[in-house]
């Protein structure tokens, strides 16, 4: 069966650090994958490779079973892969509509920006995500973490993303906003998106995901349907690695913690 996204044997090193070391990862449409692992396990790097923010050292990526070359964020977006980063990468000095359309602005006659159209669409889309959103005029600097996130999620919705990468989406949010993100993730999944939820919060992941994938030292060490596992077992994988490296089928030495 073909997956929406399939990453095979991907590698990425920074100098001597093997941040991603031959990981195999896949994602299906209408599925929420919780990607877990210690700090430094390589989760963000793996997702950056998928989002085109970093070039691959080795390995391959398929989308709908077709091999693709993702060399830049632009390439990724063209394939319907949107990422929402840990640090909520928005241009703080620009208003909501400029951020939602950043890199894909609507233009009218003479190639001039069609601000009115972009604002109108931003109102519609962001209100669908977050009916309480108010400040469309000011720079996004003054918005709350949740409001900023509604812009980023609105971006994915408007451009009809098929894959949404949420890297620690709740790290900057309060409890109410965290629940709101959870609700949105569910809604987007029901619309058929494949969603990767990067987190080190076991509770979040168990609440929201259909499948749990664990990374350790740059490798995928476990992948299990959420309903078939238990937080204690996952914690064990995170700390010690799985009995077998699920991805490569090679044994992983349990490390002393």
């Amino acid at each position: 069966m073909t997956h929406l996204v399939e990453m095979t044997g991907v590698q990425k090193s920074f100098g001597g650090v093997h941040a991603v070391d031959g990981a195999n990862f896949h994602l299906d449409a209408g599925e929420v994958v919780g990607l877990l692992g210690h700090n430094g396990a390589g989760k963000s790097t793996l997702m950056a490779l998928l989002a085109g923010a970093l070039p691959l050292d080795a390995g391959s990526i398929r989308v709908d079973g077709r091999p693709v070359a993702i060399r830049s964020p632009r390439d990724a977006r063209r394939l319907g892969i949107e990422a929402l980063y840990q640090d909520l990468a928005l241009a703080d000095n620009l208003p909501a509509s400029a951020n939602l359309f950043l890199g894909r602005e609507l233009t009218g006659r003479f190639g001039l920006l069609d601000e009115a159209a972009m604002e109108r669409i931003t109102h519609e889309v962001v209100h669908r995500v977050n009916p309480a959103f108010r400040d469309f005029q000011g720079p996004v600097k003054s918005l709350s973490g949740g409001e900023r996130q509604s812009i980023a999620i609105g971006r994915a919705m408007h451009f009809e993303a098929r894959v949404l990468i949420l890297d620690e989406p709740t790290a900057a949010l309060g409890p109410a906003e965290t629940r709101e993100v959870g609700r949105l993730v569910g809604r987007l999944r029901d619309q058929g998106l494949g969603i990767v939820l990067v987190s080190h919060d076991l509770h979040d992941v168990f609440r929201l995901s259909d499948r749990v994938v664990v990374m350790k030292a740059g490798c995928i060490v476990a992948s299990r349907r959420t309903e078939d596992t238990h937080p204690d077992e996952v914690l064990e994988w995170i700390i010690a690695g799985a009995q077998r490296d699920a991805a490569r089928g090679t044994p992983v030495r349990p490390e002393s913690v």
Binding site: A53, P73, D87, A98, L102, G103, R104
Partner: peptide
């Protein structure tokens, strides 16, 4: 403007 506001966001937006 975007580069001045957040160069990383600009890169990630495909600029």
């Amino acid at each position: 403007s975007a580069i001045g506001g957040n160069p990383q966001a600009a890169v990630r937006a495909g600029i």
